[in-house]
């Protein structure tokens, strides 16, 4: 291979990191000291954390070769369950509420798994259906309004308020989940099986891997992580509502962008984390510079298009696809 080809390889593999550095540099030059102020950085870390956790969940299921279109609703459900349980006067244990959220949303993931693996509905459609049903239930439960209570324990916003080493707990949690996810997917046997099932399920069956079991684990893990992301989101906004949370398309976007990092089209945690950071810097930075909301959409569209096009041209057929039929 000529030297030129290897340079372009590096460019393609590290495109996301390069964009991240360039974007940050531009904001620092344009925004000056204000962009580096404490509140700004904390805002960026907060939005990275909520979006990133949802992305990490989606990365797990995407690695298994399935799609979870219900991540948006799972995130909302995590927040709503936690908030609504604490509305009850006799229920004031925050950790218990969080546990209930994660378990119940995990059960939603189990339903997704059953629909996909037992009824053989393509995961894309099955999760779409689940998302519609649960979204409706959440609206019924909260009467489609923003729920907020002064009686909520202080712990409800602790993730956002409390800092360790000047960095909010929410970001430490995000880091812990990302590292945990990375170790799970790359270093444990189950995690390796998830990746293999995503690449070639038939071959996995033939060598004796229980693909259904592995995929079920992936569905439940994804849902539980995203549900916890919802709890984190609720602690940032200090309220819950059936229409707020992390947008499903934003979640898909960061996993897609992340997939272009290093692995040339395969969803991976490191890429997802970087992409979440990039998204957070973009939206907070543009707001800081007084740019309207659409600027972020346009830039995001261009970055995804360029990143995936580069990979599509260099390595044909390695990008993730989803079956719809």
């Amino acid at each position: 291979m000529s030297e030129k080809a290897s340079i372009s390889d590096i460019l393609v593999n590290y495109f996301l990191l390069i964009v991240l550095v360039v974007v940050t540099a531009v904001f620092i030059i344009a925004g000056g000291k204000g962009f580096l102020s404490g509140t700004m950085l904390i805002n960026i870390l907060r939005s990275t954390s909520t979006l990133g956790v949802v992305g990490v969940g989606l990365t797990v299921i995407w690695g298994a070769g399935e799609m979870d279109f219900s991540i948006g609703t799972e995130c909302t459900a995590g927040a709503v369950i936690c908030g609504m349980l604490l509305m009850n006067d006799n229920f004031n244990s925050y950790p218990l509420a969080v546990l209930c959220s994660v378990v119940l949303v995990g059960l939603m993931g189990l339903c997704n798994a059953l629909l996909t693996l037992k009824l053989h509905i393509p995961s894309f459609i099955a999760t779409l259906g689940m998302s519609t049903i649960v979204g409706g239930i959440l609206k019924l439960w909260t009467n489609n309004s923003v729920v907020y209570s002064k009686n909520w324990p202080d712990a409800f916003t602790a993730f956002t308020r409390v800092s360790i080493l000047k960095i909010p707990v929410i970001f430490w949690l995000f880091m812990a989940i990302s590292i945990g996810g990375y170790i799970f997917l790359e270093k444990t046997r189950t995690g390796r099986y998830i990746g293999s099932a995503g690449i070639n399920a038939t071959a996995c069956k033939q060598v004796g891997i229980n693909v259904n079991k592995v995929k079920t684990i992936a569905f439940v893990t994804c849902a539980a992580i995203v549900g916890f992301g919802g709890v984190m989101y609720a602690s940032v906004v200090n309220s819950v509502s059936p229409s707020s949370g992390v947008n499903v398309l934003d979640g898909i976007c960061i996993v897609l962008m992340g997939a272009t990092f290093l692995k040339g089209g395969q969803a991976n945690i490191l890429g997802t984390v970087l992409a979440a950071l990039l998204m957070a810097i973009l939206s907070n930075g543009l707001t800081f510079l007084g740019m309207p909301e659409y600027a972020k959409d346009i830039l995001q569209g261009i970055i995804i298009a360029v990143a995936v096009s580069a990979i599509a041209i260099k390595k044909k057929g390695t990008l993730p696809t989803v079956s719809f039929g």
Partner: peptide, 8 residues
């Protein structure tokens, strides 16, 4: 990507 771009 086109969708994000167009809505922007």
């Amino acid at each position: 990507a086109v969708s994000t771009f167009v809505s922007g």
